[in-house]
Amino acid sequence: MSLLSAKQVTKRFGGLTAVSELDFELEEGSIASVIGPNGAGKTTFFNCLTGFFHVDEGSITFDGRPIHTLRPDEVAHYGISRTYQNIRLFASMTAIENILVGQHNHMHATWMGAIVRTPAQRREERAAHVEALRLLDFVGLSGRGDSLAVKLPYGDQRRLEVARALANKPRLLLLDEPTAGMNPSETHQMTELFRQLRDDLGITVLLIEHEMRVVMDISEKITVLDYGRKIAEGTPAEIQKNQLVIEAYLGRATAPDEAGPADPVGPTEEDEALPPSDRGPSGSMT
């Protein structure tokens, strides 16, 4: 059975259908990518998976349990972590503190315990710090733990976001353009890191990526979205030959050559911010 399974997922904003009747399956232990031109609904799909948006139609199950009605914090408890397209670290907290927030689900200290500093609470806190340092090492940020997140170089911020996501000990990791803005060597390092995540830790990885080299290199399965619809799905080799995919990309002036180096990825317009969801005094979605 698939780890993640989306059936007929549809998400609309007013008149615009961002994701339309999407079926999607993801096997445990695989690495897959979602690609598509700007505005194809990729990040919207991620937001549906992580509870930031509630789908208008369809259903999503994770490990057999439905998650499309849950809030983001509940989804995180189920073992899904994510990173964000436009890096969203806790800017004025240190790198370590960022990772510690990521461990939220695996800590149990109550506020009373924190005030009196019970032995159990101290043990937990120390273990959490050790784990945070370990994760820093893992993503190649040894020694940066006390830097404020906002002060880290761009590439390191991306890495820290991955470390923060890993701190939740996820079974499924969603990465939203994790190599955007990186140079080729950094991109290569990140790609290796993702492979390691799967090979060593058994984490299932799902990427949104514009950098075609990364996608073709790492993915076992690629799903192509256009206007919110799935237009193709298959192995990298299949996708490269798919006529619909080529048209979807070439149909647009700014599209990257699917096999060649990717376009310089700017932030795509669609999901600059997270959804205002249904609660805050949010604006219209237009």
């Binding site: 809030r71 914090d73 972590s81 969203r88 806790f90 907290m93 927030v101 689900n105 923060r164 997270l274």
Partner: peptide, 16 residues
Amino acid sequence: MAIREDEDVAEGMGVN
């Protein structure tokens, strides 16, 4: 502090 910095992301990290 995470809520102060970015409450959407805090929620995404499991904070109720």
